[in-house]
Nucleic acid binder design. Structure first.
Length: 495
RNA sequence: GCCGCAUUCGUCUAGUGGCCUAGGACACCUCCCUCUCAAGGAGGAGAUCAAGGGUUCGACUCCCUUAUGCGGUACCA
């Protein structure tokens, strides 16, 4: 029990876009490494050429960087334990597989996929153990020669002990014991010379001096197989900790990588890049993700990255699976948006607005920020709040101008009054505008909500918009006046 | 089917034998503030701690059984 340097890794396989589950695992590994002054390593497990998806790697790298989870060794930066792509390490796996065969811990299997499939079909519904029937485990040398002569390319399987038990200690769940009879002779090396996940992780985790394997619970059942492999290879096994699975918001089933609709028919986001595009802040994502399966205590729930690093501890990771709460994420994102400095928010908003088709300039966005900051759940919400200021003409139903019980006559009177008052203003500035309009409300005998409601529609085209006086100031005197006048003429057509 | 893991308000959780007539957060409801919408403030409703057995003076906390959920059972990871 020496103080081995902490080295953890995430080992995604490039088969699809980087999603919430992968990000959570990455975060915990990252936090664990940083907390312990260790290293965080990124290794790409690209051993399945049939499911290989090239964009997955750039998506992964981009997503990790966006979340601020920088790695110490891995793609693009290298490191002393490389290469970090498994497809560049093939000879290594082949070498260890051969060694295992030589020492009697593994054997060549010539069974065809068809035979394996029918074997499985046969076993289905039957009670007792499943898995490979070990047909090739006890082949005579003559039989082997025969298969070889027919040019069949074998796989290499681990020769699992027929009796006894295998035990390992999960850092979260304690000792886990399984009967060896429940384990089947898993494939280590495929017939194409690529390793399976099992051989790949064990060899690489050992060669890369990984001290702690922190991964999803879906790997828990294969850990005993890995124990056997470590034993066969004569290696010491790293500490293992299996994180609880993340459930679908419905609470049923593992979070799907596929698109799902929620109760409102809204598509649920699952890929990290989608959250980025939707306008979630990386700091909110990190905070939220940290809480999916981990908590410090009863009261704290807002954690900056540094606080997370300081307080993260494996012992406080939950053992039971949890459903994601998109509501909570939105709440948290809104809170983070509110906590941003004005300039910071404005500069984050600018590219988002551009992407949403609004050609805004930084000054006007900055002017809007104080008015919309506390109204945004996600950055992309900004578009609907301020787009009225970036179009030449606004469209709305003229009856909307008749807020509450206003008559067309009342409405047009108040709108032209307002236009005139605004035009006469010596300085066109928020405070002045407010003072003037409030005086008009007073004089009109109308309620503020009726009066301002009507003006809001005239000027923004919406019943819900940022605070009126600020909006008018940003819109500018000319456009404000012309929109008010246009509203008056629209009211004409109504009667 | 078999194996494994889990099980506290709708959801995320606090809780490590007495502090619990179970605390917090999201969501929900009411009220206040208010130019709309938010934000903010004050309240409210919501959990016989999956069920049943033990152990103990005492169990949400320990043990067993059952149920349910999830995961695994591939030349996928």
């Amino acid at each position: 029990m020496t103080t081995q340097p902490v080295r953890v890794r995430i080992a995604p396989s490039p088969t699809g876009y980087f999603h919430l589950g992968g990000a959570r695992t990455a975060l915990y590994n990252f936090l664990f490494a940083r907390h312990n002054g260790g290293r965080f390593i990124l290794r790409i497990e690209d051993t399945d050429r049939t499911r290989y998806h090239p964009e997955a790697i750039s998506d992964l790298l981009e997503s990790l960087r966006w979340l601020g989870l920088w790695w110490d060794e891995g793609p693009e930066i290298g490191g002393e334990y490389g290469p970090y792509y498994q497809s560049d390490r093939l000879p290594l796996y082949q070498e260890y597989a051969a060694k295992l065969v030589q020492e009697g811990h593994a054997y060549r299997c010539y069974c065809s996929p068809e035979r394996l499939a029918s074997l499985r079909a046969e076993q289905r519904g039957q009670d007792g153990t499943a898995g490979y029937d070990r047909h090739c485990r006890f082949l005579t040398s003559k039989q082997i020669a025969d298969y070889e002569a027919r040019g069949i390319r074998p796989v290499i399987r681990l020769a699992v002990p027929l009796e006894g038990t295998t035990t390992f200690t999960d850092a979260l769940r304690g000792d886990i014991v399984v009967q060896n009879s429940q384990l089947d002779d898993l494939v280590l090396l495929k017939s194409d010379g690529f390793p399976t996940y099992h051989l790949g992780v064990v060899v690489d985790d050992h060669l890369m001096a990984i001290s702690h394997v922190i991964r999803g619970e879906e790997w828990l059942s294969s850990s005993p197989k890995h124990v056997l492999l470590y034993q066969a290879l004569g290696w010491e096994m790293p500490v293992h900790a299996h994180l609880p699975v993340i459930l679908d918001p419905s609470g049923k089933g593992k979070l799907s990588k596929r698109k799902k609709k929620d109760a409102d028919g809204q598509e649920q986001l699952t890929y990290i890049h989608e959250f980025r595009e939707e306008g979630y802040l990386p700091e909110a994502m990190v905070n939220f993700l940290a809480l999916v399966g981990w908590s410090l205590d009863a009261e704290h729930e807002f954690f900056g990255r540094d606080e997370l690093i300081r307080s993260f501890d494996l012992s406080r990771v939950s053992k039971s699976p949890g459903a994601l709460s998109y509501d909570k994420l939105e709440f948290m994102n809104a809170a983070y948006i509110r906590s941003l400095g004005k300039n910071d928010l404005a500069s984050r908003l600018l590219p988002v607005l551009k992407a949403e088709g609004i050609d805004a300039d930084i000054d006007s966005v900055l002017a809007f920020v104080p008015h919309i900051q506390e109204r945004l759940k996600v950055l992309t919400d900004a578009r609907d709040w301020i787009d009225f200021a970036y179009v030449d003409e606004i469209h709305y139903d003229p009856t909307e101008l008749l807020q509450k019980k206003l008559t067309p006559a009342q409405a047009s009177a108040l709108l032209s009054e307002t236009a005139a008052a605004i035009e006469a203003l010596p300085v066109f500035e928020e405070g002045e505008i407010e003072a003037t309009l409030r005086a008009l409300v007073e004089a009109s005998g109308l309620k503020a909500r009726e009066y301002f409601g009507s003006i809001r529609v005239a000027v923004t085209g919406k019943a819900v918009a940022p605070p009126l006086f600020g909006s008018l100031a940003i819109l500018g005197r000319e456009r404000s006046v012309s929109r008010l006048r246009r509203a008056v003429s629209l009211l004409q057509t109504l009667s």
